[in-house]
């Protein structure tokens, strides 16, 4: 069976078309739509993403929640089985978690991380002996998924751009640390991306 793109990975997933008005999400102080946030890596990173780098869709919080809820529903057994088969190849990968909101919203980050852990355990690592350990021990995820230090945003609307910046740095084999880029770089990045997408969407 062919692998399923991990959490609707935009780079290896199906094409995204950008609806009119999405670029306005790059105006100062605006939140990016998840379509825009996925469109940028899809158009700029296609064919450049190394096999060992897995990224999920920027909509993946909803994705994890939706599919994790199927794990406890017998009516969804067929869907769960299909997904387990398609997600097995990712059990061989290590997982690094970069979260630009971590220091400002620890409780929320923990809730998201719990959904990630449940998804890995229920789908990707299901056939491995230690998959239950992921759920029983909250710290166990550190053995397969490492919570890495990364730059932290100072506002409430830039996490999409921080995510794009981290992916760009990973592709250049740059080490990610808290000061590898700053909020000021992201402010500049927002303006440049807005200009670039307005003048040439491709």
């Amino acid at each position: 069976m062919n692998p399923i793109p991990f959490a609707d990975n935009p780079v290896r997933g199906k094409p995204i078309s950008l609806a009119t008005g999405y670029v306005e999400g790059l105006d100062p102080g605006q939140w990016l739509s998840t379509s825009l946030e996925d469109y940028v890596p899809q158009t700029s990173l296609a064919g450049k993403l190394p096999d060992h780098v897995l990224i999920g869709s920027s909509n993946c919080s909803t994705y994890f929640h939706t599919y994790n809820s199927k794990l406890r529903n017998e009516d969804d057994a067929h869907c769960v089985q299909q997904m387990r088969d398609g997600l097995q190849p990712y059990a061989e990968s290590g997982v690094n978690v970069f979260d630009s909101l971590r220091s400002t919203a620890r409780r929320r980050a923990t809730a998201v991380l719990h959904q990630v852990r449940k998804f890995l355990s229920g789908f990707c690592f299901y056939k491995l002996g230690h998959h239950q350990s992921l759920l029983k021990d909250p710290d166990y995820i550190m053995q397969v998924a490492e919570f890495r230090q990364c730059p932290v945003q100072t506002d409430g609307y830039d996490c999409g751009l921080f995510a794009l910046a981290v992916v760009s740095h990973l592709l250049c084999d740059k080490d990610i640390h808290p000061s590898v880029f700053t909020q000021a770089h992201i402010d500049t990045f927002r303006v440049a991306l807005r200009h670039g997408l307005s003048s040439n969407p491709e």
Partner: peptide, 15 residues
Amino acid sequence: DQIDCMLEQTGGRSF
């Protein structure tokens, strides 16, 4: 057969 639909989110929100 069942299709799941997910509403687009806006990214960057501080919770």
